[in-house]
């Protein structure tokens, strides 16, 4: 059902206009990060003229701690979160889809149930717990839960995938005397690499963008993630160095943009099949 050319031209016009309106603020922010401060609130163009990249240098050392520290903190937390989520969620998903044991279906139902529970309801006791463990102002409250398979969404995503692996593979492996562990490690995981990749990318992006967790658990500026660092620019409003703030905002978006450019297909398929963000 190919549309005739005037209609398709109209459709392209609508789509181009919509994309332009949507992307304009992003491109304007990019342009503004290369402008002198005096131009930022006067220019609506997408071309910085004069070109002034100094904001990046000012922003990088604009707070009492270098932005490099924030990047480092964010990276450590995000990478550990990816490792935790991929290992423990895949173990859990494998167990509830490929192994037989008493109570399995009840456990799976509980996992799906926890997806509906808003985090606010566990927030305060978790905070009290981590406070008493002396974990506040460390990465532990943000990382350890990932090693305990609390992100039920990724269990669900991986379970959907494990279900699709033919049973005959397991059976043949059992005949050959393989343990459950060997089946998980040598058969299920290699076959599930695309799904593990999707889970890893989304975990990285969600953790990188997370603001609430770091806001609650990290108060010492040395431990800040990039999201908290960026907020620091808004708070020290006396300076109002908008160029520096935009420059650092652009930098914090870069890792996510890189994932978008390289893994766009994986991301879009992940949403289409699971309804993720």
């Amino acid at each position: 059902m190919k549309p005739s050319w005037p209609r398709s031209l109209l459709a392209h016009a609508v789509l181009c206009a919509a994309s332009l309106v949507m992307l304009y603020p992003l491109l304007w922010m990019l342009a503004s990060s290369f402008r002198p401060n005096s131009d930022i609130f006067t220019s609506i163009s997408l071309w910085p003229d004069p070109f002034a990249p100094g904001a990046y240098r000012r922003g990088w050392s604009g707070l009492q701690v270098s932005f490099g520290t924030f990047f480092n903190n964010s990276l450590v937390i995000a990478v550990l979160a990816v490792i935790g989520n991929v290992t423990t969620c895949s173990l859990t998903a494998f167990a509830v889809t490929r192994l037989r044991f008493r109570g399995r279906d009840v456990f799976f139902a509980l996992m799906l149930g926890t997806m509906m529970v808003p985090y606010q309801v566990t927030l305060i006791p978790q905070y009290i717990l981590f406070l008493h463990l002396d974990w506040v102002n460390t990465a532990l409250p943000l990382v350890v839960p990932k090693f305990l398979a609390v992100d039920a969404f990724f269990i669900f995503l991986l379970a959907q995938f494990f279900r699709g692996i033919p049973r005959e593979l397991d059976e043949a492996a059992v005949m050959d005397g393989c343990s459950a562990w060997r089946i998980y490690w040598n058969i299920a995981l290699p076959l599930a690499l695309p799904a593990l990749g999707t889970a890893a990318i989304f975990t990285f992006i969600f953790t990188w963008d997370d603001f609430f967790g770091p806001l609650v658990y990290l108060n010492d500026i040395e431990t800040f993630t990039v999201q908290l660092g960026l907020r620091g620019f808004l708070d020290s409003s006396g300076t109002s160095d908008w160029g520096a703030m935009f420059a650092m905002a652009v930098l914090t978006l870069l890792p996510v943009l890189a994932f978008f450019l390289f893994f766009q297909r994986t991301l879009i398929q992940g949403i289409a099949t699971t309804g993720l963000k």
């Binding site: 992003l26 999201q227 914090t252």
Partner: peptide, 11 residues
């Protein structure tokens, strides 16, 4: 993909 970040909220 970008919308949840602090960068976009400040923008």
């Amino acid at each position: 993909l970008l919308g949840a970040s602090v960068a976009i909220a400040t923008l």
